[in-house]
Design a protein around this nucleic acid. Structure first.
Length: 381
DNA sequence: AAAGTATCCAACCGCTCAGTC
DNA sequence: GGACTGAGCGGTTGGATACTT
């Protein structure tokens, strides 16, 4: 293990940044970009280690950072994403525009975690503390499925990160930031210090909603395994894992691995960039994709959903009014709106009604009720 | 008003991993 | 293939501030 030299160097300043230091760092990055963080402090005239400079920039000085209180929607998003991804703050931050992973982490630890805790919900597992899953509640399948999905999403994110790195190699100056803080920090030239436009939020959540819907509504013995193994859905439980992504007009990342012409059965890690492009070209007709999906039961590979996108199947605009509603939104709203410290922005009387019973009913039942209330065969897919 | 306690959050630390030589 | 480096991530800390007694 190679230790960072940062904190081993003597004479370097630590602790809170002064306005003068901020100004120096800001001015330097605006003019030159950060380049090598290690070399930056000397060039910028700062007695700080590069790591400290990077953190200060990433978490505070970056122009595309939204500061201030989290709104209700952001709280919901954090809870939803945490339930799926756990403490993967950078991944969560990817889906929260203009928020840093550090800020989200802090907010979780100081607000949301306690709120869940007070409600008797384990903030780690998002289950009631006196967990009765698997002991006759009838929801163990749901919990297990969500757990599977979380694993699946976890691996998907890894693939996504890999692809982004890959895309950065071929797109020297990507026009838009696509992955939030991690990429935002990659200010490599002076112009990129300007605020970047973030992707629409929560498309991935909507994708998950679709997965949840599919799994529960079909009621079959379909299995959902890790991304590296086969992912089986029934024919009705179409391919929500497939999210066509048009990253930008010149650099396209798209995946549809169930298509016979696109290396059916290949996993994301097996994709080469040329193949991705080829697949996109062949699949850019959504109707064709749908036909391909309809003819395929075994869905392989995962959709590295990637940021600045127009998702074909899990498009926000197409999905948000779908009868199934926002399934995951549903249960997170219960959490957000039923804290012991009532949120004045919560208005739904149904929420309070739902909260009358035990937490299991309110947490998972509500999620499942939302699913049950949804018609099967949603046009979403 | 003072002391004690709780809360918030910027910053740090240590680890991991990908890339390079 | 191994050593080294740069960078990112998540956990933790500690100072500042707010609140309570």
């Amino acid at each position: 293990m190679v230790k960072s030299q940062c904190f081993e160097k003597v004479g370097l300043k630590k602790g809170p940044w002064t306005p003068e230091e901020d100004q120096k760092l800001l001015a330097y990055i605006e003019e030159h970009g950060h380049g090598s963080w290690r070399a930056l402090p000397a060039k910028a005239g700062l007695r700080r280690c590069g790591k400290s400079c990077r953190l200060r920039w990433t978490n505070y000085l970056r122009p595309d950072i939204k500061r201030g209180k989290f709104n209700l929607q952001e709280e919901q998003s954090i809870i939803q994403l945490h339930a799926l991804l756990g403490n993967r703050w950078s991944a969560i931050a990817t889906h929260l525009p203009k928020r840093t992973d550090n800020e989200i982490k802090n907010y979780w630890n100081t607000h949301l975690k306690k709120r869940l805790d007070k409600m008797g919900i384990d903030p780690v597992t998002h289950k009631p503390k006196a967990d009765s899953f698997g002991s006759g509640s009838g929801h163990s399948k749901g919990a297990a499925s969500l757990s599977h999905m979380a694993q699946w999403e976890s691996a998907r994110l890894e693939a996504e990160a890999r692809l982004v790195r890959e895309s950065k190699l071929t797109v020297p100056n990507p026009p838009k930031n696509i992955l939030g803080s991690a990429v935002s920090a990659q200010v490599s030239n002076k112009s990129s210090a300007t605020p970047t436009e973030r992707p629409r939020c929560l498309d991935v959540l909507k994708a998950w909603q679709g997965v949840v819907f599919s799994m529960f509504s079909v009621g079959s013995s379909d299995s959902l395994e890790s991304p590296t193994s086969t992912l089986n859905f029934s024919e009705n439980a179409l391919a929500i894992p497939l999210i066509g992504v048009q990253k930008n007009p010149t650099t396209t990342l798209a995946f549809a691995t169930n298509n016979a012409t696109c290396n059916r059965g290949t996993t994301v890690s097996e994709f080469d960039r040329g193949n991705q492009l080829e697949c996109f070209e062949k699949l850019k007709d959504p109707a064709q994709v749908r036909r391909n999906l309809d003819s395929s039961m075994a869905i392989h590979g995962i959709s590295p959903y990637a940021g600045d996108h127009n998702a074909w199947f899990v498009d926000s605009s197409a999905n948000e009014n779908a009868p199934m509603g926002n399934i995951i939104d549903g249960f997170s709203e219960i959490l957000v709106c039923n804290s012991l410290d009532p949120n004045p922005t919560c208005s739904g009387e149904n929420i309070n009604d739902n909260y009358a019973g035990n937490l299991e009913d309110n947490y998972w039942n509500s999620l499942l009720n939302l699913v049950d209330a949804s018609p099967t065969g949603s046009s979403v897919f």
